[in-house]
Simulated assay, not measured.
Amino acid sequence: MIKILQNHLLIIFGWFFIGLGLIGVILPILPTTPFLLIALALFSKSSPRFHKMLLNNAWFGPTLKQWEAKKALPRRIKYKIYFIIIISFSISIAIFADKVLLQLLLVGIAVVLLFFIWRIKEAPLMAQSLDDE
């Protein structure tokens, strides 16, 4: 009974993170890739069908497959994540202009996030197809 409940909760949270990731496609301040990576991890423990669905998705499937196989992200994805972190934290810091302690906390969190993203291996560049030449 507990295992079934756990599976259902993991699936619900997986879909929740897919929803956040899809919102992130529309809103530039919300990152898509981390949410989809979380959903992929949740589905890998709860639903082989949904896990496979994510990996076979035409838009973000290749990035997720690469993450699952090599624990690496393409450089362009890492640059997008850097950009989103810097912009969103800069906006937050500007909003709290009169609260220096909170600003310092936000700077610290941003630095930690940037450091963790920086430590993720970069996927090798894919070979260009003949159509790109």
Results as ranks from 00 to 15, higher is better:
residue 57 N to V: 08
residue 62 P to A: 02
residue 128 Q to P: 11
residue 70 K to N: 15
residue 71 K to V: 03
residue 117 I to D: 07
residue 113 L to A: 06
residue 94 A to V: 08
residue 129 S to T: 08
residue 127 A to M: 06
residue 84 I to V: 12
residue 4 I to E: 00
residue 47 S to K: 01
residue 97 A to F: 15
residue 104 L to I: 10
residue 43 F to L: 05
residue 74 P to W: 07
residue 57 N to S: 09
residue 122 E to D: 09
residue 17 F to W: 02
residue 45 K to F: 02
residue 52 K to D: 11
residue 95 I to P: 02
residue 56 N to D: 15
residue 113 L to R: 05
residue 8 H to Q: 09
residue 102 L to G: 08
residue 101 L to Q: 12
residue 85 I to D: 04
residue 97 A to M: 10
residue 129 S to W: 08
residue 124 P to E: 10
residue 18 I to N: 01
residue 102 L to Q: 09
residue 109 I to H: 01
residue 89 F to C: 07
residue 82 Y to W: 12
residue 2 I to R: 01
residue 87 I to W: 07
residue 51 H to M: 05
residue 31 P to K: 01
residue 30 L to F: 10
residue 133 E to C: 10
residue 54 L to P: 11
residue 80 K to M: 15
residue 8 H to F: 06
residue 104 L to Q: 09
residue 42 L to I: 02
residue 47 S to F: 02
residue 73 L to A: 07
residue 114 L to H: 03
residue 90 S to V: 05
residue 1 M to Y: 02
residue 70 K to I: 10
residue 15 W to M: 07
residue 125 L to E: 14
residue 29 I to V: 15
residue 113 L to V: 09
residue 18 I to P: 03
residue 5 L to F: 02
residue 65 K to L: 08
residue 117 I to H: 05
residue 125 L to I: 04
residue 91 I to S: 07
residue 71 K to A: 15
residue 82 Y to M: 04
residue 28 P to S: 01
residue 93 I to W: 05
residue 33 T to W: 02
residue 33 T to G: 05
residue 89 F to S: 07
residue 119 R to Y: 12
residue 112 V to L: 15
residue 22 L to D: 06
residue 106 L to Y: 07
residue 129 S to E: 09
residue 45 K to R: 08
residue 24 G to W: 02
residue 50 F to T: 03
residue 87 I to E: 06
